[in-house]
């Protein structure tokens, strides 16, 4: 049984935003423009929250990349009336756009605000049409979407591994954000496989998860920022 998860080292994260951009490109996330973004309608599946601690000039800044935590005990899956969001056997929380009716119960249930609602049809300029990722569905108006841990890459990776008659390796499946991180702050893999880096990292003394007390069991772990 695999359990895909991620560990983000906040000591290493510089808040450069490479992951956010990689995610946008990989997942055909539309650009909503400054006005809609100001109204809280940005469609980004990832965002970086910056935490300031202390008074100038002694400020300690922590950048926290936020994405869907693919919770083991996901509240969003429990409230969906049409089974459009559910947890699969790999532990990933799937979102089926063609089944979603846009009721937004899941958005209300998610304590991390990881879900986004399509208020408009995706506006893609004509010259970008050929630059879209063909492996990812373009979401339509009226459905909820969220980070998928790039599970389309998992489909490709499984396909290739099976063709080459071997087991899935750690490097076979890496989401776009992890791949793009220049500081190597994000590590991704199977949390239950001792051969994967995340397996040991998640037991580190610095580890914490967001809103852990809610019992959602998120599969994204953070390594606390420590002063050097």
């Amino acid at each position: 049984m695999t359990k895909w998860g991620m560990v983000i080292d906040l000591n290493k994260c510089t808040g450069c935003g490479a992951c956010v951009n990689a995610c946008r490109i990989e997942n055909n996330i539309p650009n909503v423009g400054p006005e809609a973004a100001h109204n809280g309608r940005s469609m980004d599946w990832m965002q970086i929250v910056t935490e300031y601690d202390g008074e100038y000039p002694d400020i300690r800044i922590t950048h926290i990349p936020l994405l869907c935590f693919q919770c083991d005990n996901a509240p969003c899956t429990k409230v969906c009336p049409v089974h459009a969001t559910y947890q699969n056997s790999d532990g990933l929380v799937g979102q089926v756009y063609y089944r979603c009716i846009g009721c937004r119960f899941c958005m209300a249930a998610c304590p991390y605000s990881a879900k986004k609602f399509n208020y408009a049809e995706p506006d893609v300029p004509e010259e970008y049409e050929n630059h879209l990722n063909p492996d990812v569905t373009r979401r339509m108006k009226g459905v909820v979407e969220k980070c998928s841990f790039c599970h389309h890459r998992l489909a490709h990776a499984k396909d290739l591994a099976r063709y080459e008659d071997r087991d899935l390796r750690e490097s076979d499946f890496q989401p776009a954000c992890v791949e793009s991180c220049p500081a190597d702050a994000m590590v991704f893999g199977d949390l239950e496989n001792p051969d994967h880096t995340v397996h040991d990292l998640k037991d580190s003394s610095r580890v914490f998860r967001l809103e852990e007390e809610l019992g959602t069991e998120p599969k994204v772990y953070y390594l606390k920022k420590e002063d050097k």
Binding site: Y86, N88, S89, L92, G94, V96, Y97, Y98, R99, D135, V136, T137, S148, H151, H152, A155
Partner: peptide, 10 residues
């Protein structure tokens, strides 16, 4: 074979 939704719907 798995009939999991996200197995085919990406």
């Amino acid at each position: 074979i798995s009939n999991d939704c996200i197995h085919c719907h990406v």
